[in-house]
């Protein structure tokens, strides 16, 4: 008998499926399943549950995007379907996370364009999708309904519900068969509260991903890291209201000075490093989906995750 990690857990993270293939009534090439762990991330031979996934973030409004992230994307950035097709082919993320950032502009009203964008991106890529809608309670209802409708049958992960505005997003997720990101500001209690609220609207737990909000590396990541660890820990200890997969994004890490002020090739290196050094730790803290914006971050993250998962895909000796 060898010395191994001491695992004394009673709980299990629920599984969440993103994307529907033809047999499930959708058009995705495959579905992604996350969650299912019975132990700490990557622990066990083989580790329990499903391997963490990397999502690539893009937007329908690139003027609101970090310049470091789209420097190498070029004109494709102006057409989200082009951008998504390019990403699937060249960058090979596990998922695409589409931000309908245009809904966050003041005076937004063009709902029909939202539907068109979602449909076009669904055409352009066969990867499972995460779609982010508005963040204004006044718009939520119509925006989420529009997205839900446009993506009906595709089992997307819809974002985001917050404790002050969760009913519209939850209603759209339930009506059109999607799942939902529940976002709360870096606090285990607030994360749990939102999950309870969502449960009480009727949204089942296996349709929720927790986003405990990820602060920038160096400016808040220390809190996010521990909140993710605590959520995972509580879930494994049996708290079913926290036993959902976690999603974490490096978006804030791209706003730090070191990335913002770097130039040329240095900017790419800085962005990739900052995404790597925030998102790989996020998986170690318990995140099942990590999201990046720099195209060059994806491959490195995926092989690092693979090596942590089964020791296989490491390069060299």
């Amino acid at each position: 008998m060898g010395l191994t990690p001491l695992s004394e857990w009673s709980g299990q993270i629920g599984e969440l499926v993103i994307g529907a293939t033809r047999t499930d009534g959708g058009t995705r090439s495959h579905a992604v399943t996350i969650g299912g762990e019975r132990d700490l991330p990557y622990i066990g031979i083989p580790p329990s549950g499903h391997i963490p996934r990397v999502a690539y973030e893009l937007t329908d409004d690139p003027s609101l995007w970090q310049s470091a992230a789209i420097r190498t994307i070029g004109d494709r950035a102006h057409d989200p379907s082009d951008w998504a097709a390019f990403a699937e082919k060249e960058l090979q993320p596990d998922l695409i996370r589409l931000y309908l950032s245009s809904t966050r502009r003041r005076g937004f009203s063009d709902l029909s364009q939202i539907g068109k964008t979602v449909e076009a991106v669904l055409q352009a890529t066969k990867l499972p999708l995460i779609i982010e809608g508005s963040n204004d309670p006044a718009l939520d209802s119509s925006v989420f309904r529009k997205i839900g409708e446009a993506a009906e049958g595709e089992r997307v992960l819809l974002g985001t519900a917050e404790s002050g505005r969760y009913r519209s997003a939850a209603a759209a997720a339930m009506a059109y068969g999607h799942s939902l990101i529940a976002q709360s500001p870096i606090d285990i209690n607030l994360a749990k509260q939102l999950n309870i609220l969502l449960r009480e609207t009727g949204l089942p737990h296996d349709r929720i991903a927790i986003d405990p909000y990820t602060g920038a590396l160096g400016y808040g990541f220390e809190y996010s890291y521990s909140v993710m660890e605590r959520i995972r820990y509580s879930a494994l200890k049996g708290d079913t209201d926290l036993a959902m997969p976690l999603i974490s994004s490096a978006a804030d890490s791209l706003t730090v000075k070191e990335v913002r002020e770097a130039e040329g090739g240095d900017a790419d290196q800085a962005a990739v490093a900052w995404e790597m050094y925030s998102m790989l730790p996020a998986t170690l803290a318990g995140a099942s989906i990590v999201c990046v914006r720099h195209p060059l971050s994806i491959a490195g993250l995926k092989s690092a995750i693979a090596s942590l998962w089964n020791g296989q895909k490491s390069v060299g000796v």
Binding site: L217, G218, F221, E222, Y223, Y225, S226, E258, A262, D266, Q269, A270, V272, A273, W274, M276, Y277, S278, P281
Partner: peptide, 20 residues
Amino acid sequence: LPGASRKALLVLRQNIYTDP
């Protein structure tokens, strides 16, 4: 350790080792 990694590493270390 390339420059970008070095900075990110030290910042990560600082984050993880602050008193939460």
